[in-house]
Design a protein around this nucleic acid. Sequence first.
DNA 1: CTTGAGAAAATTTTCGAAATTATGTCAATC
DNA 2: GATTGACATAATTTCGAAAATTTTCTCAAG
Lengths: 243, 243
Amino acid sequence: MTTRRIGVSPQAMYQSFKGRLISGEFAAGERLRPDRFRDEYGMGATAIREVFLRLTGEQLLTTEEQRGFHMPEASFEKLEETLAYRLLLEAEGARLAFLHGDLEWEARLYAAHHKLAHIEHRMNEMAQIKPVIPVWTRIDWEFHEVLMSACPSTTLREAHRNSFERYRQQVVAILPTYGFRPETIPQHAAILKAATERDAEACRRAIEAHLTSHRDLIVERKTDPREGSGANETRRAANIETS
Amino acid sequence: MTTRRIGVSPQAMYQSFKGRLISGEFAAGERLRPDRFRDEYGMGATAIREVFLRLTGEQLLTTEEQRGFHMPEASFEKLEETLAYRLLLEAEGARLAFLHGDLEWEARLYAAHHKLAHIEHRMNEMAQIKPVIPVWTRIDWEFHEVLMSACPSTTLREAHRNSFERYRQQVVAILPTYGFRPETIPQHAAILKAATERDAEACRRAIEAHLTSHRDLIVERKTDPREGSGANETRRAANIETS
DNA sequence: CTTGAGAAAATTTTCGAAATTATGTCAATC
DNA sequence: GATTGACATAATTTCGAAAATTTTCTCAAG
């Protein structure tokens, strides 16, 4: 039903590859050739190419005619733009969710927050957080997705999902901690509190504080360039390993 | 340079077809088979299919595995959702444009408004506006695009473009006048005035009044169902002609 | 008259090869 | 020595046909 011969379905490949695009596996600007992933997914290059085309439509890949596919360029400006974009959508979605969400929704939000707080407290005591980044990314998404889930507009929720993905793509390309800091824990709690009190403006401020706390990190790095320009070196090295 | 053999480039086909998707040529839910347009564009079905995939990523087409491509479904709910989505992005974009726009930008906005007011006054005196809808759509887009152009976030401007296209797709599928009414003229003028005064809140209200004036039309039709359910009949008939 | 199984038809998707375009190399010239 | 042009190489994109899937049609049973 889901598998064809020995390969995976295009839909599964789409989901899988999107996860890789926003988890920092590839460096910004890196060229991605479809036939490079043929064996890995057991599909023809054309089928992979079609998945890439769809990801291009979602701005998670770029393409120039006759130049192939590339990872989108990353920059502080782009990070700020996608941050503001996501903030705009998430604050509005949360506002609408506060108007429509019932007790069931509140309960699901608490459940999602509990999972998130659990893993984040664990990360806080780990020396290397890199291995848990993919699972943390998923749980972080689940929390913000539950927050939006009581918003009745599917259009807005799907746009928010895309903004989340694009923001994360910028974050993992630029920030050495992949977006996690100890401050993240009370920030998520503040969002939960604002949601409980149905205070849209407080929630907007909490989300903004949550997202913009990355800026401190950027300033720190800019004044303390011990390890080069950031996370890209690690990323590139990881790529060399796998090829 | 732009043409290959006898056909057009995929990029040109993409632009052209997107125009057709938001001009009401196809009915909501209609199935669109790539090979149907092979002769028209002088390309293989696969190349057309790839353009469709990209448009799917932009939500201007839908696809289900093994079920081909379809026009997105249209409904009053979806119209309201895309309206709210576009309003959110355009109001924010205009707000930022007010902070960054210079005199040159203001001048371009007046130029765009002049063109728009000209064609809208002409439309107001026409018996059949349908033939000028494509050119009006383009000029209407130009005005709103110039309004956004002083917003420094490319991310937001591109998201707004997509919201405009998706909103228009809903409008032409549902509203018999394709979104044009006599009230449109002073509404555009109100947006221009708010921009001149750099009043973000007034601009937001003007855009909202502009977009939501369609609702009157829906209410009118619902209480006066002289011509069936709306514009779809005309649309479907036009399709039969061409097949 | 409705329902269901099986087969035929139509459609979507995939594939490998061909055509087109970009890139890299090397020699010749200024 | 640097630049330019031609040639060879590599990569991307496109194509038509084959494979896989869904839909439609037929016909018999309840």
